[in-house]
Write a protein that binds this DNA or RNA. Structure first.
Length: 475
DNA sequence: TGGGGTTAT
DNA sequence: ATAACCC
């Protein structure tokens, strides 16, 4: 069976096969390779998904080495009922019956010796998370973050280079590192098999480096696209890795018990599919494309139906530095402007620290609220506006008071959303800095003006012209 | 269920 | 500005 990847069906001229790109000189890849290359031509990729084991718990065990070997849970305060939940725990705790998202009461009952750590402050988790990403970027710069504890890396180029440097007699000595999904046997004459095996070796090197340099363990999955790499990385846990060979692709996706388990099909889409009688991967594969497009729109329909076949042509997008910084606080009730201002000031203070460390400067600020509603309607409202250029410039520079003007702006945004003369009941406040730019203060506006006049935020006369989506803040 | 993030519309 | 997705 050919690789069930949509791009494989369309050989692209700019993506030469291994044979075409191999050096013609002796000692490169000799004639043997010609036999190895599939007649179709192939732009098949090798992707690894790296997934840290119970990340927060691992970070805590590094911070508190005396806790190693003991059952450990990380908890946060949640919900309108203000109860504590264990968001993650180490494997010692799991063996004693503690589960993720378990109420702290139940967890303590099951496991009285459980040690609990407050996981509210994400700072150390965030820092360690970026150390992992940076370590992976040393292998290949194409690294995409997914949350704090997962990364995708596109290994295609690396793997092809490694294969090219092998002598023909070494080719048959290539072995897999870790598990092969389904225990499928490897065909040493299949070029994609060889690429994936080399991918599994790189994955092992990555896990080894994470362990040696950062003291972290995790899983890895190697496959021909992101979807499959992610699905296969979870097959053997913890601290193990698995490679998927193309012939076992259908087995892997049919191992899902419900479409909701398919990454990319979230709560809403799953609910709408259920109404249509679609529950399993097979249901989705065989459902009428036309009807699905009518129900979900052509874009979502085509994307998720491809996912159901294990096809995913989405590229690994290098994440680079974060595109936004935000801090939230949720609570039972906030019903006065003074109270809101206090909370906003707290959020802002920590954000300013983070933004200062980053070095880049945010050009937009956003305030997010959630209003109390008896329905479970989980809906947030937000207002954003540009940060005045004078305030931006003072951002990194020590002790000028940047809090006051910022709080001022935020309170204007607040009053734009909330009629403070009427009673209100909020359950969440969040402040977000986005539209980050390398601090290039002087000429940037001018360049922007020439390149994209309609999007420029600064005119030569110095007046502001806001984008439509930014709310004007005036007195 | 929170406290983060991203992209698409 | 919101809604969907991910963790």
């Amino acid at each position: 069976m050919e690789l069930a990847d949509s791009e494989a069906a369309v050989p692209s001229p700019e993506a030469p096969t291994l044979a075409e790109s191999a050096p013609a000189e002796p000692g490169g890849l000799p004639g043997l390779v010609d036999q190895l290359v599939p007649s179709r031509g192939s732009s098949s990729r090798v992707i690894v998904h790296v997934d840290l084991d119970c990340f927060y718990a691992q970070v805590e065990m590094i911070s508190h080495p005396e806790l190693k070997g003991k059952p450990l849970g990380v908890f946060i305060l949640v919900g309108v009922q203000q109860k504590y939940l264990v968001v993650t725990c180490n494997y010692e705790a799991r063996e004693l019956g503690v589960k993720k998202l378990m109420n702290v009461r139940d967890a303590k009952e099951k496991c009285p010796q459980l040690i609990l750590i407050n996981g509210e402050d994400l700072t150390r988790y965030r820092e360690m998370s970026y150390k992992v990403t940076e370590l992976l970027e040393e292998f290949s710069p194409i690294v995409e973050r997914l949350g704090f504890d997962e990364n995708f890396v596109d290994l295609t180029e690396m793997v092809e280079k490694r294969l090219q440097h092998l002598q023909s007699n070494e080719l048959s000595a290539v072995t897999v590192s870790g598990h092969v999904y389904n225990n499928q046997s490897v065909n040493l004459h299949d070029i994609m098999h060889m690429k994936l095996l080399v991918g599994s070796q790189v994955a092992a090197e990555m896990r080894e480096a994470m362990h040696n340099q950062l003291g972290l363990t995790g899983c890895a999955g190697v496959a021909s696209n992101k979807l499959l790499a992610k699905l296969v990385s979870g097959v053997f846990k913890p601290n193990q890795q698995t490679v998927l060979l193309p012939e076992s692709c259908q087995d892997l996706i049919h191992s899902l018990n419900h479409i909701k388990e398919m990454p990319g099909i979230g709560y809403k889409t799953a609910k709408r599919l259920e109404v249509l009688g679609i529950n399993s991967v097979h249901d989705l594969q065989t459902f009428s494309s036309k009807i699905l497009e009518k129900e979900l729109g052509i874009s979502v329909a085509q994307r998720i139906q491809k996912l159901s076949f294990g096809e995913d042509n989405s590229p690994v997008m290098p994440s680079g530095p974060p595109q936004s910084f935000s801090e939230e606080d949720s609570f039972k009730k906030c019903s006065s402007e003074v109270e809101a201002k206090k909370k906003i000031e707290e959020l802002l203070a920590s954000l300013l620290n983070r933004v200062c460390q980053d070095g880049r400067k945010p050009h937009t600020i956003r305030l997010v609220i959630r209003r109390y509603s008896s329905e479970k309607h989980y809906s947030r409202e937000s207002r954003q506006c540009p940060i005045p250029s004078q305030v931006i410039q003072k951002l990194g520079t020590g002790n000028y008071d940047v809090m006051t003007p910022m709080v001022d702006i935020l309170m204007k945004l607040f009053r734009n959303m909330v009629n403070v003369k009427m009673p209100f009941h909020l359950t969440l406040l969040s402040v977000c800095f986005c539209n980050l730019k390398a601090q290039n203060t002087a000429k940037k506006g001018l360049i922007d003006y020439y390149l994209t006049p309609s999007l420029s935020t600064t005119t030569h006369s110095g007046k502001r012209s806001f984008k439509m989506k930014d709310t004007h803040i005036e007195d």
